[in-house]
Amino acid sequence: MTTGEPLIVLDEVNKHFGPLHVLQDVSLSVGRGEVVVVIGPSGSGKSTLCRTINRLEPIDSGTITFDGRPLPAEGKALAKLRSEVGMVFQSFNLFAHKTILENVTLGPVKVRKEKPAAARERGLALLDRVGIANQADKFPAQLSGGQQQRAAIARALAMQPKAMLFDEPTSALDPEMVGEVLDVMTSLARDGMTMVVVTHEMGFARHAANRVIFMADGRLVEDAAPTEFFANPRSERAKDFLSKILTH
């Protein structure tokens, strides 16, 4: 599963929003091909953690290394790094003025300078993979939430990223659409994609994750295999959290 040096390494990362210390000495390493699910109560800093990895949130102290290189500051080098890290957002964030296919091909054509015809072909293949090839020429607003999120995953995959970050990808979806998005994510995980997934979907954490990270109050509280975490959470905080979400 994990081979060689880890792909993503966070070391003693700290981050504040004003007086709020959202990340406190967070250290974490994610191996190549590993699927790490981050769970925790809201406000625990898990989304922020996810967003620091491609520097959508700059950090105050500590280091983040991706593929052996520290995250660059703003500029061309950072843009290049971001192109190697796919990101999927809670609110999809598809480009509202572009069709689904244009959403998927924008990055490859403008960032990677691929030929439009080639990018289009691969974009259609990716849309087919996530099951919405027939929606290629529609605009995001014409699609259901589940379809939009699958399009957003295809858009991220079109860059052929080394890792994928998912920031609560199913939290904005109607319940009946959660499954179709999780199916796509599960198949990605099976194909060996390195993934960091912030989610409340415990089912996904159980069957698709290699490791579960539990965060509370800006700290990384537990880091364990899913079976172990769900059967025997060590901290009171995690026990409390699990008792609240698993009773329903």
Binding site: A79, K80, M87, F89, G107, M159
Partner: peptide, 10 residues
């Protein structure tokens, strides 16, 4: 919108 664009490497 801008975040998604940045995350793609634009």
């Amino acid at each position: 919108q801008a975040e998604a664009a940045r995350s793609l490497g634009l």
